[in-house]
Design a binder for these strands. Structure first.
Lengths: 224, 224
DNA sequence: GTCTATACCAAGATAGAC
DNA sequence: GTCTATCTTGGTATAGAC
């Protein structure tokens, strides 16, 4: 684990020695897990994607599960961090604007992740995996955060008529749908805007207010 | 394939000889595919769930993939059929009511499916499988149908500001989120109502109109 | 640090007895 | 119709050379 130049037997295919091999493995694994599932992906395929041999993976990771654990951890942390920053930078702002900003920044995090690994949270074999236990509660925190912001933004009649699942769940589902949509074509800022607006509509926010929230949130995010 | 009573060697575990073995296998497979993924499920586990031996599965199905194909086909067809019935029975009804009814009946189909197999459409290893090709377009038809109904129900400003993904995609995502929520706790009629109302809100329908659509749709569905 | 070679095991599927 | 037994393949992971 001491990557000094010139060390070790040369790779068979010296194609992509650019980035460090650990990240190459993670990137290849992410792409494959998302497109074929965790159990459906073999370490040989990961190795091929990373440009080295199957056994060489085990110099960088102890097991296939460990690769998954690192990917999971990275992706939740990105989202939680983003959400924290937004909440901190939105102290004096209306709830509408706060929710819009939260949704946009969360989706940005999701969309910015290489190979759509936000999708990992929808894979049953990932969720069933013991490594998921260590990171699943972080997603729960995110749901709570959405719930709190939405509670303040929502029209009274909406929050009254929304039982279980709570608004938080519903909104996270809505936001996470970007990962499914990303399958088809690239997700642009207009898609993000559409979904963010949909989040406010879910809370019963009026069209005019949505438009205002959009403007305010985007400029606030630009400053942050 | 000629199931006559008294034929064949007796099972080791005569626990569940009630239903026919083919359905037992399908049920066990559905449960496992959904909870552990397709690739993550072994034929031995399916056999155990169905109360027979691994090799015996191959008397009823040609391969593991064939089991998946049957499950996929069943689940889409259920949804499409339901949607067709609703559209037929809603000729003289407002778009709001039509959309509410479509969402409710579609979710009912999803929720009624044993072991939540509507979830299969979210599994990457299923989507990547060659058998998916034969049934994926049916889900596309469903998206189109939602799109058409929503177009008529939606407030003008909403349809104008909704680009890609279209309203159809968005609504199907919303509706299909019941399968994810079903993981946590049981999905009751109030959950379905909450999500159906959310669909109308997504289209910019006002609260009063949503309430009216709910009443009208439920009584119309009760008649059908 | 990456390779080749291989141990070891579990998977899907088949053959033939009962 | 279901069983036991087994074939074949392909998986993860390790050992040791380079």
């Amino acid at each position: 684990m001491s990557p000094r130049p010139g060390r070790g037997r040369p790779r068979l295919l010296p194609g992509k020695i650019a980035a460090n091999p650990r990240d190459q493995i993670l990137a290849a694994a992410a792409e494959l897990f998302v497109s074929r599932g965790y159990a459906g992906t073999t370490t040989r395929e990961i190795a091929e994607g990373a440009g080295l041999r199957q056994a060489s993976i085990y110099y960088h990771f102890g097991s296939k599960e460990e690769i998954l654990a690192v990917l999971l951890e990275r992706s939740v942390q990105d989202r939680v961090e983003q959400a924290g920053k937004v909440e901190a930078g939105m102290g004096s702002v209306t709830p509408d604007v706060g929710l819009y900003a939260l949704a946009v920044s969360d989706m940005s995090a999701l969309v910015a992740m290489p190979y759509n690994i936000g999708m990992l949270y929808r894979l049953p074999d990932v969720i069933a995996s013991p490594v998921y236990d260590r990171y699943g509660h972080l997603r729960g925190d995110l749901v709570d955060r959405y719930g709190r912001v939405a509670q303040r933004a929502a029209e009274e009649r909406v929050s009254a008529s929304t039982g279980e699942p709570g608004l938080g769940e519903l909104l996270v589902q809505m936001v996470e749908s970007v990962v499914s949509l990303r399958r088809d074509d690239r997700v642009g800022s207009s898609t993000v805007a559409t979904i963010a607006a949909a989040c406010l509509r879910l809370c019963g926010v009026a069209e005019d207010a949505i438009e205002q929230a959009r403007e305010a949130a985007l400029s606030a995010l630009a400053r942050a």
